[in-house]
Design a protein around this nucleic acid. Structure first.
Lengths: 187, 187
DNA sequence: TGCATTTCAAACCAATCGGTCTATAATGCA
DNA sequence: TGCATTATAGACCGATTGGTTTGAAATGCA
């Protein structure tokens, strides 16, 4: 009944996600997005409403891509500290990859000035979610307070490694570092 | 012999530093800088050469402001793990301040895409320097490998707390967190 | 007072920003 | 075939980007 669209929504989001992931919301321009998605502006605005709308869709896409692996690792039954060790192993491989761009949520936390309130809420809830996932894995071994404290510690460590990994990363040293840092999971 | 300048270089840098600190290099515009420094563009380019030149001057200024306190804390004789505890106490108060904007070097590490090579080198050397400062405080108690490992761990922790602090910060919990996280300083 | 020197304010530059509008191309149905 | 509908490409919008040029204002010295 009408002209068929030439783009595929998911492909557009995938391409845009790569760009936003690398350069952030404020650092990515509309023209770059148009170039990389090969979607014309008109269709882009029809589909996503605004640059911010597209970013939100990409953030959700990122959560699906990465979050699924993270959540999958941390929710494996039985919930245990072993899941946490596995997550940090996953992170280590991730940081060591060729085109490491950090975590899109953590990157976003560093450009709060430029994000819309709705986007900020999603960013904040990522940190909460990560804390909760750690917490749930700790509860079998520690009490509420102990689990809460360790979860906050693990979030700091996770975020720190992600950021420092952009500057410099030594996989072997990181393995030893984890062994030491994760001793708090045992006692 | 010529018209006297109406601006004070240090005051200009101080004002610009606040802005760059808050919004980053790419996120701060020349017009904002002109407005906040009350320095006209012509003089700005005469004095600093470019926006990047001004940013470099501000980064150095930040190092003087904050770095002095950090370095002062970590180089107090005798070099010991107590210095490290004091540094994390300093950080805790810093994060808890009203207009917390993170650390300008760590913020810069998150916009590497937009920084000039010379600036990037300064950012990288901050991380190296921090590692070395930690290392030197650890050597009295641990061997080279042990000190190196713990220093890397402390950098991750320091950077992580800085970043997470932008999203959420609970001073009391952080005190307990430090007590746990810094156990590796004792054994 | 007049001149060399330097700073100042503001107009100006091409390029780009996020976003909109128009005109044409492609489709299914009648 | 003609029409309603939707997607396309790209011109266009005012505002802003980092950066430059111009010309007047302010000084010390002669």
């Amino acid at each position: 009944m009408a002209r068929p669209r030439e783009y595929n929504r998911d492909e557009v989001i995938d391409a845009a996600t790569q760009l936003f992931w690398k350069k952030g919301y404020h650092g990515t321009s509309l023209s770059e997005l148009v170039a990389v998605t090969r979607l014309n502006k008109q269709s882009m605005y029809k589909e996503f409403g605004s640059k911010a709308g597209l970013f939100d869709a990409c953030l959700e896409n990122f959560r699906n891509i990465m979050g699924t692996r993270v959540i999958g690792t941390l929710t494996r039954e039985p919930l245990s500290t072993e899941n946490i060790r596995n997550l940090f192993q996953l992170q280590s491989k991730f940081i060591d990859s060729a085109d490491f761009k950090g975590c899109m949520f953590i990157n976003s936390a560093n450009e709060r000035e430029f994000l819309h309130p709705g986007t900020l809420k999603k960013v904040d809830s990522f940190f909460e979610r990560l804390h909760t996932l750690f917490y749930d894995c700790l509860r079998s071994r520690f009490d509420e307070a102990g689990s809460n404290l360790r979860a906050a510690y693990l979030v700091d460590l996770f975020v720190g490694a992600m950021t420092v990994g952009k500057v410099k990363f030594d996989p072997e040293q990181h393995q030893q570092l984890l062994q030491m840092a994760l001793q708090v999971l045992d006692k």
